[in-house]
Simulated assay, not measured.
Amino acid sequence: MTSEIGLRDRKKAATRAALSTAAARLARVSGIESVTADAIASEVGVSPRTFHNYFSSKEEAVLAHFEESVYDWVNLLRARPSDEPIWDSLEHVVVQIVTDGTRSLEETAAIMELVESSPALLAKKLEVHLRVTRLIGEVIAERTGTDIDTDLYPNLLHTVVGAACRASFDLWMGGKSGASGPEELVRGAMRQLRQGLPQP
């Protein structure tokens, strides 16, 4: 029984991922305005009803990878040793994410470009961002003995680390940084943050 439930959950996860990938691919080709739930479902070989079982809108489907990446951050951070300094934990997590061979940085960049070109996707991303990024702040608060609702520290820390990752990613994708890879840039960004971001 347990194995059947596990198989069913894996199939659901695979279907959700396939629908999200198809939504992003179609949106990049035709623009999010021209994409329909029916077209996304057809691309994956499922019914429109199945699409709506997983997503309330095409925008939500496109942004599913972003939302899942936040959950990845949360799970990886929770898995770090409880007595590890928070800066060490965050650096381990960030490096693990950017060096994960199963993640395509080019695909991530393409989705980011797509989102930033669409007011509808930007609005939906803000909604998702407000909902899920708090989860990272909550884990930081747990590990540092602070309160996500009353203390600046956990809110500030998860925001600046996220910004450092984005800056590193943008610089790497620009192709002019001279870095050997995104890991070098991320480690450099974390080092500068630890030092208080000193002026060069």
Rank of each mutant, 00 (worst) to 15 (best):
I86Q: 07
V161L: 02
S177D: 05
Q195H: 06
V35I: 07
S82T: 12
G137Q: 07
E127Q: 14
R10I: 00
I5E: 14
D149P: 03
H65Q: 13
P200N: 11
A189L: 04
K176C: 03
G178K: 06
V132G: 07
R134C: 01
H158Q: 13
K176G: 02
K125Y: 05
V62S: 10
F66G: 02
G178Q: 02
D149Y: 13
M173F: 11
P48L: 08
A24N: 02
R28I: 02
A141M: 07
L122D: 01
A61C: 04
E183D: 12
V128Q: 08
F51M: 08
E142I: 08
A163C: 01
L77I: 09
A179M: 14
R134H: 11
Y54V: 00
E127S: 11
T50R: 14
L122S: 14
E43S: 15
G175D: 09
A27W: 05
R166C: 01
V139S: 06
N75K: 12
G175F: 08
F66E: 12
R131A: 14
R10L: 12
E107N: 10
R8P: 01
L114V: 06
S47L: 07
G188E: 09
T150C: 02
L121A: 05
T150Y: 06
S57H: 04
M1A: 13
R25M: 04
L90R: 06
F169Q: 02
E106H: 07
V94G: 00
L185E: 07
A37L: 03
E91I: 05
Y153R: 11
I97K: 12
I32K: 07
G101F: 02
S177R: 05
P182M: 06
G45N: 12
R194N: 07
L185N: 03
D100L: 10
A13M: 09
S56H: 05
P154Y: 01
Y54K: 00
L156H: 14
G188V: 05
K125V: 00
A14I: 04
F55Q: 09
T159E: 10
R103A: 01
A110D: 09
M190P: 10
S34Y: 08
Y71R: 11
Y71W: 12
